[in-house]
Amino acid sequence: MKISILYFSKTGNTKEMANVISRGIKKVSDFEVGIFDLENIDDDFLLESKAVIFGTPTYMANTCWQLKKWFDEGNKYNLEGKLGAVFSTAHYAQGGGDIALLTLINHLMVKGMIVYSGGSALGKPFIHLGPVAIDENFEKSKKMFEIFGERIALKTKEIFLNKNI
């Protein structure tokens, strides 16, 4: 089964967290992970993916314009019915990472995706909308991002391999 991670990264932080999420996904058996910046997407891999995770740096308490443009102009990708999740990076705690995530979640819903965050119901770490890595806790955030990837993979397996749901 395939999971794609799409991201934009200017400084490398969002790309780094995409790689950490991939490590978490790979803890669950039978997954291939494609990690793509917005300029280098493998169309076939993305379309075959059961889940797509989107990553954005936070700018002015919002998602980056590059990802917004991708959603606005990305009509060649049918995302309907795929599991969707989001993550962000920010320079500081009040930077608006949660607002950036909500903006992305709106796009996922418009595209007909099944939105999943990894949930707070699963206990610590509590991931309400998706993980946000801020500069002051960047290294410490990696464990949460890895757990996020693992939770997304487990939910993808549950939804797409269990025909009784």
Rank of each mutant, 00 (worst) to 15 (best):
K2H: 08
K2T: 02
I3H: 02
I3P: 03
S4M: 04
S4Y: 05
I5S: 00
K10S: 14
K10C: 07
K10R: 13
G12A: 06
K15V: 01
E16P: 00
M17L: 15
M17I: 08
A18L: 06
A18I: 02
A18T: 01
I21K: 01
I21Y: 02
S22R: 13
S22P: 00
S22M: 13
R23E: 15
I25K: 03
I25P: 00
K26N: 11
V28E: 14
S29V: 10
D30W: 06
F31N: 07
E32W: 01
G34Y: 09
I35M: 02
F36N: 01
D37P: 01
D37T: 05
D37S: 11
L38M: 08
D44H: 07
L47I: 10
K50M: 06
I53A: 03
I53G: 02
I53L: 04
T56W: 04
P57M: 08
P57W: 03
Y59K: 03
Y59R: 12
A61C: 11
A61Q: 12
N62R: 14
T63I: 11
T63W: 07
W65K: 13
Q66K: 15
Q66D: 14
L67W: 07
L67S: 09
L67M: 15
W70R: 11
E73W: 08
E73N: 14
E73K: 15
E73V: 10
N75L: 12
Y77L: 02
L79C: 00
E80N: 13
E80G: 00
G81F: 10
G81Q: 10
K82P: 08
K82S: 08
L83F: 03
A85N: 07
V86Y: 01
V86G: 07
F87P: 07
T89D: 03
A90T: 05
H91L: 12
A93F: 09
G95E: 06
G96P: 02
G96C: 11
G96N: 08
D98S: 14
D98H: 09
I99A: 13
A100H: 05
A100E: 02
L102Y: 02
T103V: 09
I105V: 10
N106K: 13
N106H: 10
H107A: 12
V110H: 10
K111W: 01
M113Q: 06
M113W: 04
G118E: 03
G118N: 05
G119I: 07
G119E: 14
S120M: 13
L122W: 10
G123C: 15
H128A: 13
H128T: 13
L129R: 01
G130S: 08
G130M: 05
A133R: 04
A133I: 07
D135K: 13
E136Q: 12
E136K: 15
N137A: 12
N137Q: 15
E139K: 14
K140W: 01
S141A: 15
S141W: 08
S141Q: 10
K142G: 06
K142D: 04
K142T: 01
M144G: 13
E146L: 01
I147L: 09
F148V: 02
F148K: 00
G149L: 04
R151G: 11
R151V: 15
R151E: 09
I152F: 04
I159H: 10
K163Y: 14
I165P: 00
